[in-house]
């Protein structure tokens, strides 16, 4: 009789173990994905490295004003904005010799290495100590990091207003510093 009870008990145990579970089951996993704002800017010369742009004012024709101080650099930037923002790039300068003017024309990237919304450049603007907008409407974009990538900044240095010509003096190398700023979103 004890054996019989034991066998019945075992059958009951197996019955409990055979409870069905759903044939298909799932589990959830949460992911938090963030894109912070990005604003990085770097000025490089035509060789793609950080370095000064050399400009020289001179003339070879008697009777003409000095001219010919031109050079090019590139502003490489990375930008991520929110869905409602754009940025702008501004420029200011200090150290321009008396009697002369430094101006810059800005062209947005056109080669194959940029992507995104690079905005709009400007024609030649005279630079001073007060920042001026040289590119606007910049959204999420990057310019590339190779030589020739970025916003092309064509500098022109020449004599300023005719009345100030008498204040120009020959000098050795002097350094003017242009500050490029990529603004916060607005």
């Amino acid at each position: 009789m004890k054996k019989l009870f034991f066998l019945i008990a075992m059958m009951g145990a197996f019955s409990i173990l055979s409870v069905n579970v759903n044939a298909q089951v799932t589990s959830n996993q949460e992911l938090t994905m963030g894109i912070p704002e990005v604003l990085l800017i770097n000025a490089v010369n035509a060789s793609g490295v950080t370095g000064a742009v050399s400009l020289e004012l001179t003339t070879t024709v008697a009777g003409t004003a000095i001219s010919g101080g031109t050079g090019t650099s590139y502003a490489q930037l990375s930008s991520i904005v929110t869905s409602t923002q754009t940025r702008k790039m501004t420029a200011s300068v200090t150290g321009v010799p008396t009697g002369t003017e430094l101006s810059v024309a800005t062209a947005v990237p056109t080669n194959a290495n940029f992507a995104g919304t690079v905005g709009t450049g400007t024609g030649a603007l005279v630079l001073g100590e007060t920042a001026v907008d040289i590119a606007t409407g910049i959204g999420s974009c990057y310019t590339g990091t190779a030589a020739g990538d970025g916003y092309q900044l064509d500098y022109t240095w020449d004599a300023g207003a005719a009345g100030a010509y008498g204040t120009i003096f020959a000098t050795g190398a002097t350094t003017a510093t242009v500050v490029l700023t990529l603004s916060a979103g607005y």
């Binding site: 938090t32 963030g34 894109i35 919304t117 959204g139």
Partner: peptide, 12 residues
């Protein structure tokens, strides 16, 4: 690239 916007996104 211009479609990428700064924000936080939650996905399950």
């Amino acid at each position: 690239y211009s479609q990428i916007a700064a924000a936080t996104y939650n996905i399950t």
